[in-house]
């Protein structure tokens, strides 16, 4: 399922999910085709799906503007 398009977003440096890293499908932006309904995401800084700000993590929300956000450029 390729529904959520996060291509234009700079996803937080600390967000992880099982699929995206290095997969063919996501190319340069591994978050591109992530279906969060079927993927478990976690934050490196909290080692779980609850972010340091007590909210849940996912590519669409782990973006600039969130209090715990870190740009991938700075890590």
């Amino acid at each position: 399922m390729k529904e959520e398009n996060h291509a234009d977003q700079n996803v937080c440096a600390y967000l992880r999910a099982k699929n995206p890293f290095g997969t063919l499908e996501g190319g340069g932006n591994p978050w591109l085709h992530l279906d969060t309904a079927n993927t478990i995401c976690w934050c490196v800084k909290s080692q779980g799906p609850i972010g340091p700000d007590a909210r849940y993590v996912e590519p669409a929300r782990c973006v600039s503007g969130r209090s715990c956000y870190t740009s991938p450029e700075f890590s």
Binding site: E3, E4, D35, T36, N38, Y56, P59, A60, G65
Partner: peptide, 23 residues
């Protein structure tokens, strides 16, 4: 966001219900 523009924040959450993802 920092720049002042609004960002779409993913699938909606209502109570404990989040979604739907529409494939």
């Amino acid at each position: 966001s920092d720049g002042g523009e609004e960002i779409e924040k993913g699938l909606s959450l209502s109570g404990n219900v989040r979604g739907p993802s529409r494939g």
